[in-house]
Computed example of a mutant assay.
Amino acid sequence: MAQKQVRSTRPSARVYRRRRLAVLITTLVLVGLLAWAGVGIASLLRPAAPAESTADPAAAAPGAASSQPSGVPSPEPSEPNGCLDEEVVVSASTAQTTHGPADDPVLVMTIKNAGTADCMVNVGTSQQEFSVTSGADRIFSTSDCVEDPTDTEITIKPGASETARFTWTRVRSAPGCKFVAAKPRPGTYGFTAKLGDVSSETARFELR
């Protein structure tokens, strides 16, 4: 009696590499988000300061008239509005301009509130993009392999800025997280940071 052939269910090497690239990009992008979120987490873990007494000593005396008007609610602090595109300035830079064969470029996205009031910015993986080009050749983009993009809103004070870093491991990518076998060669490359509809100017760096 002929034996049935059992078809292998293991993923191919190409599928495995594509999944690994997607996990790598998502993890590295989340590192930048955790750096942003760390400020809020630290404030939550910090013990609350004891409340100061606001009572009027004269009001505690018998028969003393209250100096506070009755029936007037205390004003509540207003929540900051979302930043307008013209209030957000995105810039791109690299930790160093020249990289040896063993150095992976660290791409830095800086987001500045150029407005005059506190405002909220969505810095989630649904909005941010780190892309690398060589002339007209599109080399790499974090948007190619991000799975389950998220929204993360932070408040930035006027004139203040926040940064996120992404370590590019010298791989190429393609839309849909398709595997690209070719490796970037030594030469000059451009890095552009993008947040939503706001893009930075291109920062140049060199691979040796």
Rank of each mutant, 00 (worst) to 15 (best):
S199F: 00
E162Q: 14
G82W: 11
A203F: 06
A2S: 11
G100K: 13
I25M: 08
G40E: 12
V29C: 13
A61I: 04
R7T: 11
A35I: 10
E201Q: 14
R185N: 01
A203R: 10
L44I: 14
P101A: 15
P50D: 05
A61L: 14
T155F: 03
H99P: 03
L107H: 10
P149F: 11
P186I: 00
R138K: 15
V23G: 03
E87P: 02
V23H: 05
A2Y: 07
Y189T: 01
T54D: 11
S43Q: 14
D197Q: 07
W36C: 15
G40S: 13
T150S: 15
G176I: 04
S74E: 13
K194V: 10
A22T: 03
T9I: 03
R204S: 15
S12E: 06
P75R: 09
R17S: 06
R7W: 02
F140R: 03
P47V: 08
P62T: 09
G124Q: 09
S126M: 07
R17Y: 04
P105M: 12
D144R: 08
T150P: 00
L33P: 00
G159V: 12
K194Y: 00
K112H: 05
R10S: 06
K157C: 00
E52L: 12
T26V: 05
P47T: 09
V132G: 04
E129G: 01
N113E: 10
L207C: 05
G63P: 08
A102C: 01
S74G: 08
S74H: 09
W36R: 07
P62R: 13
C145Y: 03
K178R: 12
S66G: 11
T26A: 08
